[in-house]
Design a protein around this nucleic acid. Structure first.
Length: 273
DNA sequence: AATGCATGCGCAG
DNA sequence: TGCGCCTGCATTA
């Protein structure tokens, strides 16, 4: 379930569990990372870092493990030895010598041992990340304001903003009443500033709760006097994957359309051009 | 058993 | 614009 909040949380979880230990066990049961895992085995995790959807695990002078979860990569901490676990799909298994902390990475698009320079190259091609202290929203705004591309596509472009995925994209546009097909150059400075600040707040909350929750307190089912809902992807949302269902605010049907090979969701009434 | 779909992305054409 | 890649889960047959 990887948007940026997941990756920042993982960076913190890897650090908490493993950096205190001077020697880790590293293996690649699935095989594709076996040679690098052998190099890392017996060494210490010295740092972790997230930028957008990219995760870096630092092993001092040995370099960094660059991880990108893609659409269905996952990390399981400590749960991987249950009966349902499939050890043959674990790309990177990290564990303390005593086995009291374990992490199993499955299904990543990227899992590679890289140098500092290669890591820098990844940072260089990513836009500002609302979850990073060093993020410069003006850089993102400049790109948005210079583009004829739709704001929906720009928000998903990791060179423009790093870490926003299909859920935050749909939800932040709804929360600001912005038609997803609005060209970037028609987004006002005030609109962008509000969208950026909202992403900072929403994604921080996502890290804290480990899920995406975007519905304002005054719009919860309880506050609206409606029966409770349960979305099948964790948190409460306004439009994501709610095609043809009634909008929580106006009751009209949520629209959906393909945009750059992804499904876009929006309320045609609340999000007017 | 087979198919489809997913919070991603890079590449060919 | 479409395809492939990585995996797991729900739905269909």
């Amino acid at each position: 379930m990887p948007e940026g909040h997941t990756i920042h949380r993982l960076a913190h979880e890897y650090a908490t569990r493993f950096t205190p230990h001077p020697r880790l066990r590293a293996t690649s049961p699935q095989g594709a990372f076996a040679a690098s895992a052998a190099l890392l085995d017996g060494h210490r995790l010295t740092a972790t870092e997230a930028h957008g959807k990219h995760l870096f695990l630092g092993f001092g002078p040995l370099g960094w493990v660059h991880i990108h979860l893609g659409l269905f990569g996952k990390v399981a901490f400590e749960g991987a030895q249950g009966p349902g676990a499939k050890p043959d799909t674990v790309r990177l298994h990290l564990a303390t010598p005593a086995g009291d902390a374990r992490a199993d990475l499955r299904g990543p698009t990227v899992c590679a041992l890289v140098t500092d320079a290669e890591k820098q190259a990844v940072h260089a091609r990513l836009g500002p990340d609302p979850l990073r202290e060093d993020a410069d929203p003006d850089r993102a705004r400049a790109r948005v304001r210079a583009s004829r591309t739709t704001i929906a596509a720009l928000l998903m472009d990791q060179k423009v903003v790093a870490g926003v995925g299909n859920v935050y994209r749909a939800e932040v546009l709804f929360r600001h009443g912005i038609d997803p097909y609005t060209p970037g150059r028609e987004i006002t400075d005030a609109q962008w500033d509000a969208v950026w600040q909202d992403l900072v707040d929403l994604m921080r909350e996502g890290v804290r709760l480990n899920r995406i929750d975007t519905v304002r307190p005054e719009h919860t089912p309880e506050a609206m006097g409606r029966p409770p809902r349960k979305d099948d992807h964790g948190g409460e949302v306004y439009v994501y994957r709610r095609a043809a269902l009634p909008c929580h605010l106006c009751g009209d049907e949520i629209s959906t359309a393909g945009l750059a090979a992804r499904n876009l969701f929006w309320c045609p009434t609340c999000q007017k051009a």
